[in-house]
Amino acid sequence: MRFLISGCLLLLCITGIAQPHTFTLKGKIGSLEAPAKLYLRYSINKTPHIDSVTLKRGVFQFTGKTDDPVPASLLLSRNGKPIQWPYDELMFYIDAGTLLINSRDSIKNAIVAGSTVNEEFRQYNRLMASIQSGESPYQTLKHEAAAVNRKFVIEHPASLISLTAIRFMSNDADTLPVFDSLLVLFNGLDKQLQAGKKGQELYASLQKKRRLLPGMTAPDFLQPDSTGKPFSLSSLRGRYVLLDFWASWCKPCRAANKELVKLYAKYQGKNFTMLGVSVDTKRDAWLKAVSDDQLPWLQLCDLQKDNAAAILYQIYGVPTTYLLDPSGTIIARNIHGKALEEMLAQLPLM
């Protein structure tokens, strides 16, 4: 399992002219009394907001301001203590005006009334839930999910949930033809939705993701090595390169390092190398991990909260790898373990 850099709701919102509007969330969850608490989490302009209320006879109310509909979640703590897994959680959209949220028992079963976007979101979730089966192979579920997403977008061209659906599909689109079909789907959306801030953000994201597909030239970047000397990815042209994004605090990364060390030793001296890019922000922790794991290949890190190379390569979780050919063309993305070994064995590594 890949270690997520940060947790986030995979939802989008559309914005027109940014004018703050008051929202009110009110409702009732059974007849719960103190110490039961309800927590509200959402983000506006990348600024997280967390609020809470203690329930009285199940009743609660939140108020605030938002520019547009924004994704949010309500989490119920029956004992009033900090939220712990498994969560009793409702995901929905905060919207201007008043939303009514009611349930007889738990927040996850609550119904949200008073908002078109939440009605569309409920329809979307109902469709996606119909295909969730642990008995089906992953690829089958993947294709079924893509079909449901595509159908929803075609039937709801003006819904901001369609932006969410396209983004979800883009995460699994691993060939140029499949990806380009998503651009066609985007172009079929309502023109106002396309032109809105979030529509344009999605379009820009799609363009960036397209440049990272197999067959495309890997974007070049410059980052300092452990001595502070700048190093460019393009300077490795002429060799096959495994570009590895990782972090000292990522346990799956550290486990993968052991296997990468073996592969590096096996192909050392051939036209193959590795380049590590750490998303660490603490120099000592980064260099200690390099030393402890005995990583002999070049390591880069800009020590910034948002690593520039990671942003360029749309890295949302580590470890993430890219395999490049001598011309700098991407051969594969996120290839690990046995699959990586088998691919390297087939390459002309002289």
Rank of each mutant, 00 (worst) to 15 (best):
N125G: 15
L160S: 13
C8V: 12
S327I: 04
L9N: 12
I311F: 11
R254Q: 07
V153N: 02
N257W: 00
A147Q: 14
L141I: 09
L4R: 13
A247G: 13
S43K: 12
R254P: 02
Y240C: 07
A158W: 11
I94W: 05
E155I: 01
L99G: 06
D51N: 09
D172W: 11
C8D: 15
C250T: 10
L76T: 05
K209P: 04
Y87P: 07
P219I: 08
A129S: 14
R239D: 15
W249D: 03
K108R: 13
F221D: 02
E341Y: 10
Q200K: 11
T24F: 10
G188S: 04
P348G: 01
T329G: 04
D280K: 05
A332W: 11
F245Y: 09
A310P: 05
Y39V: 11
T175W: 13
F62Y: 01
P69H: 08
K305V: 10
W249S: 00
K142S: 15
R122C: 05
L260M: 07
T22N: 06
H21Q: 11
I131C: 14
I101Y: 06
G199R: 03
G58N: 09
Y138V: 15
S52H: 09
K65T: 12
A310D: 02
K26M: 14
R254A: 02
T273S: 08
D95R: 06
K288I: 00
D180I: 05
G97T: 06
V261G: 00
D172I: 05
I131T: 14
Q84K: 15
M274Y: 00
R254C: 10
Y87N: 12
M274F: 03
S159W: 10
T227Q: 11
W85Y: 13
N102D: 10
L185S: 10
L76N: 01
S278K: 00
F62H: 01
L182N: 01
V279E: 12
S103K: 08
M216Y: 06
K46Y: 11
E341L: 12
K56V: 13
L141Q: 12
I166E: 10
R333A: 13
S6M: 06
A339F: 08
I94F: 08
S31P: 00
F221M: 09
A218T: 02
I107W: 01
